[in-house]
Amino acid sequence: MREPLSRERVLAAAVALADAEGVPALTMRRLAKDLGVEAMSLYHHLPGKDALLDGLVESVVGEIVGAVDDERDDDWQVTLRRWFLTAREVMLRHPWAPALLGRGRPVPPVLYLYYEKILATLIGAGFSYRIAHRALHAFGSMPLGFVQETFGGGDDEDPDAEEAALAAMAEAMPHLAAMVAAELHAATDPTLGWCDSQVEFQFTLDLLLDGLERCRVEPM
Rank of each mutant, 00 (worst) to 15 (best):
E89A: 13
M169D: 04
P174H: 04
F146K: 03
P108M: 06
L53G: 09
F203H: 03
V90W: 07
V217K: 08
H44N: 02
T191D: 10
V68E: 09
D50R: 14
L101Y: 07
H94P: 01
T188R: 11
R72G: 06
L209I: 11
L46W: 02
P98Y: 12
Y112L: 15
D206M: 12
V78G: 12
Y43G: 01
Q202G: 14
A51I: 03
L11F: 09
P159S: 08
M179W: 03
R93S: 08
R72Y: 07
S59D: 12
I64L: 14
A125V: 07
V107A: 15
G152C: 12
F146T: 07
S59R: 13
E71A: 06
F201N: 07
E157H: 15
E162Y: 05
V37G: 04
C195T: 08
V147K: 10
V60Q: 10
F146V: 03
R216G: 00
H94E: 01
F151G: 15
V110A: 15
S41C: 12
A18P: 06
A39D: 06
E89K: 00
E218C: 05
M91A: 04
G140Q: 02
H175G: 10
A97T: 06
L207W: 08
E149F: 06
A161M: 13
L42V: 04
V60I: 15
T204I: 06
L205T: 04
E63K: 15
G102V: 00
H185W: 03
L42T: 03
L35K: 11
E162G: 05
V110L: 02
Q198W: 01
K117A: 14
E3S: 05
Y112T: 14
V65H: 13
A135R: 07
V78P: 09
H94L: 10
L56R: 11
D155M: 15
V147F: 10
E218R: 15
P24L: 09
A165F: 10
D156A: 11
L56G: 03
K117H: 07
G193I: 13
E183H: 10
V180H: 14
D70G: 14
F84L: 01
V37P: 07
W76R: 13
R7A: 05
E3D: 13
L92E: 03
C215K: 11
G22I: 04
A178T: 00
L35V: 06
E149K: 14
A16M: 06
L136G: 01
S197P: 03
S141M: 08
D196E: 08
Y114D: 06
H44E: 06
T204W: 02
P190C: 10
R29H: 05
E213M: 09
V61A: 00
R105T: 07
D156Q: 13
I64D: 02
E157V: 09
I64Q: 08
R72S: 00
Q198V: 05
S59I: 00
T150G: 15
G140T: 01
